[in-house]
């Protein structure tokens, strides 16, 4: 079984409880329907585990299959520069079926982001490198599709696209 080769750090986007008993890392693609399916499961899990779960999202955009995956990943990173990463993350997944470049710009205005800054950050080389580093780290950890989850550093193989299978992970330990 594969293990997480890049440890969770301050560079990561994290939510939930810091220093939690359970650290769940997802490698995801904003345009991947399976990630869209997992999105509410993770939300629900975070709601139920308010004290013992930390969630980390890392980018794994499959650009050839999903032409908007990279732009969406960049949009979330750009929103992070204005402290709205998770707001953008949620909005993209909630509107995944209607993603387009215009829709993504619309999310930024809905979140009241500074549009000039957001537009610049969408094309920022440093942010692009960050997304690519996420992708490479995922590959090195054996990620070969999305979503791939790691719980406390071990790749999850029992997730079968149900909330139950995700929740069961936190019960086993």
């Amino acid at each position: 079984m594969s293990t997480l080769r890049v440890p969770v750090s301050g560079e990561d986007h994290t939510t939930g409880t810091a220093q939690a008993k359970f650290v769940l890392v997802e490698y995801g693609d904003y345009q991947c329907p399976h990630c869209g399916l997992a999105f509410p499961f993770v939300k629900k899990l975070l709601k139920k585990h308010t004290t013992d779960l930390q969630f980390v999202f890392r980018n794994f955009p499959l650009q050839e299959s999903h032409p908007l995956a990279m732009m969406a990943a960049m949009a979330a990173e750009a929103a992070d520069r204005q402290d709205k990463f998770w707001e953008m993350h949620d909005m993209i997944f909630k509107n995944q079926k209607h993603l387009s470049p215009d829709a993504i710009l619309g999310f930024a205005s809905k979140l009241k982001l500074n549009q000039n800054q957001f537009g610049k950050d969408l094309r920022d080389q440093a942010l692009l490198s960050k997304v690519e580093a996420d992708f490479e780290g995922g590959l090195r950890s054996g990620v070969n599709g999305t979503p791939t989850f790691f719980l406390n550093g071990e790749q999850v193989t029992s997730y079968n696209e149900t909330y139950k299978s995700l929740e069961a992970l936190l019960k086993e330990k």
């Binding site: 050839e64 690519e132 590959l139 070969n144």
Partner: peptide, 13 residues
């Protein structure tokens, strides 16, 4: 298909 698509994305590396 998944495997070839993955290598497609990994070409740069």
């Amino acid at each position: 298909s998944d495997q070839m698509s993955l290598y497609n994305e990994t070409l740069r590396l």
